[in-house]
């Protein structure tokens, strides 16, 4: 397929996942702080901005209403939900022939909802419902895509973007929150772990797999390496590896396949208990770097054909 279409679909996947992750983390943070307000608020909001990579851009006060509005509805924030959905919609508009009408409608309606004039009022008054509706609209989009798109390369590129974004986000979340998690104990440590799990929709799944004692090693094991939980980093990377294999077909691209194999194996063969004391941080950083490498390889290989050519064409005189 055309590189431009593939790239646009890949970014639809990334933007939608980014919007959903942002909404979920906002939701969890917001409600944790409602339940246990206190001096931790500023730190918590600061951390959230850091997870979302916009801490350097944000100049407002570190309190819930300002940060929420910045992360959800601020068009000057390139990482805001409204920016992500707008770009997903722009991409989808040029892909009308490549995506199902149902998928286009789901994205377009989401965009129209965020763009309506009184959206700000809702965000102020009913933040919880706004976050919920954003999450469910994102889930609707991935659900509609799964139900209506043929399993062709276009679908694979969209999924690839979504999974890379998800793996990256989970790593960042653990990395930023880890300092506090490692230091905390008793009641506050417990709440922090619960909020991390909830931030990736993993709390219920975790309780089923383990138990409510929330052993930090088990939580890390679960979020990083669980074989069955669809948001664990390893699960995403395994899917990414399979997708890349299918997309590359017989034209093996050694550097891309090496990059994804390396990060998948790195995650898969890491023994969490041995690194949980003191070596988790460098491990997560390394993992993130390797995930970026995969993204770079994907973009270079699938979307940039011909850019390395020294073009020469004759001018007619």
């Amino acid at each position: 397929m055309l590189s431009r279409h593939a790239e646009d679909l890949y970014w639809v996947g990334r933007y939608v996942e980014r919007a959903e992750d942002t909404a979920r983390m906002l939701d969890v943070t917001y409600h944790n702080l409602l339940e246990s307000p206190g001096d931790g608020a500023e730190t918590t909001w600061g951390e959230l901005l850091e997870v979302l990579f916009v801490n350097a851009l944000y100049t407002g006060p570190l309190e819930s209403s300002a940060v929420s509005s910045y992360l959800v509805a601020d068009r000057t924030n390139p990482g805001s939900i409204i920016s992500a959905v707008e770009r997903a919609r722009d991409n989808a508009r040029g892909l009308r022939d490549r995506i199902s009408t149902e998928l286009w409608e789901a994205i377009n309606v989401f965009h129209l909802d965020l763009a309506r004039a009184d959206f700000h009022i809702d965000l102020d008054r009913r933040a919880y419902e706004v976050f919920r509706s954003i999450k469910s609209r994102c889930q609707l989009i991935s659900g509609v895509a799964a139900q209506t798109m043929p399993r062709d390369d276009g679908y694979r590129f969209m999924l690839l973007g979504l999974l890379l974004e998800r793996a990256e986000m989970t790593c960042r979340l653990l990395s930023v929150r880890y300092a506090r998690l490692a230091g905390g104990n008793g009641q506050s440590g417990f709440h922090a772990w619960v909020s991390v799990l909830k931030s990736v929709s993993a709390y219920e799944a975790y309780l089923k797999a383990h138990d409510a004692s929330l052993d930090p090693t088990d939580v890390l094991q679960f979020l990083l390496l669980d074989q069955e939980f669809p948001r664990s980093v390893l699960y995403c990377l395994q899917q990414v590896e399979r997708l890349i294999e299918r997309l590359a077909g017989p034209s093996h691209q050694a550097s891309m396949e090496r990059a994804v194999g390396r990060v998948r194996a790195h995650a898969e063969f890491t023994d969490i208990p041995t690194i949980v004391d003191g070596r988790l941080d460098p491990f997560l950083e390394e993992l993130q770097r390797e995930i970026y490498e995969v993204s770079d390889e994907v973009e270079a290989h699938f979307f940039r054909a011909g850019t390395d050519l020294q073009l020469h064409f004759q001018r007619w005189a």
């Binding site: 034209s251 979307f303 011909g306 050519l309």
Partner: peptide
């Protein structure tokens, strides 16, 4: 989506030119 190299036209696809 197109490029011309050495007087031939190519389109950029995910499987190369």
């Amino acid at each position: 989506d197109l490029l011309v190299d050495d007087r031939h036209v190519f389109m950029r696809t995910t499987k190369g030119l």
